[in-house]
Amino acid sequence: MPHRRTLLEYRDRRYLKAASLLIAAAVLAYALHRPPVAPYGGTWLGYALGTLAALLALWQTWLGVRRRRDGSGSVQGWVSAHVYLGAALVVLATLHSGFQLGWNVHSLAYVLMLALLATGGYGVFAYLRIPRLMTDNLGEDSFEDLLLKIADLDERARTHALHLPDAVSAVVMKAIQQTAVGGGIARLLSGRHPDCPTHEAVRRLHDQDDTLDAAQADHHRELYSILLRKESLLIRARQDLAYRARLGFWLYLHAPLAVATLAALAAHVFAALYYL
């Protein structure tokens, strides 16, 4: 099987090299730097690292926005740069701080940036891992195929249930009419529906009903098998939605955190320059 190139390997890891170079240069400068009192943002190296980090942060934001607007092939290059230079940004900002943290807007910007990195890190992980899981889950079907199959099974279940006792019919009708693939945020992310009517119907039909006549028993058997198939299709469809949600969920944290980080960064720079 040919090796699929991921965004991390884009163009022979061009951005990995660039980011590594940047990190190595910054770490070397920090190690050789002899600050007057203690390393912090106000030494010449502190200002240099801070300026570089701020510019990098703005560029990162621009890359993030551009990635959203453009859906074409070169996206991979931008994401690759975004990921590697984002990691480099954290190193630069850490060295800029001189490892000095406190209860202030300066550390707030730093902590928000770390949270931003954490969500972005999860995003990379999701991009690398989830598409493969989605393929494994769906097999040769598409999500729409699953829905069509479910609709078909529902139709057949409806016919068989007509012949069965009212209680059974009610459970099956509920399974047909009220089973949902999607749900709230928790259901979308987990893919689990603890009160799924179809699960309930499967449980209910699991045991053979001795009161049924031969024809009804046939219907019962057939219905049970239909419901089992529907249940397995449902699990796959919901899992597919869960994967999609997990692919996108981090961005609901990442984007607001990016704006929050930029706002805190602006306050940090302003405060540092206002009280020079």
Binding site: L147, V181, G184, I185, L241, A245, G248
Partner: peptide
């Protein structure tokens, strides 16, 4: 089936 509950986080 899709109309019964949101199928995406945006929805």
């Amino acid at each position: 089936l899709l109309a019964r509950a949101p199928v995406s986080l945006a929805a």
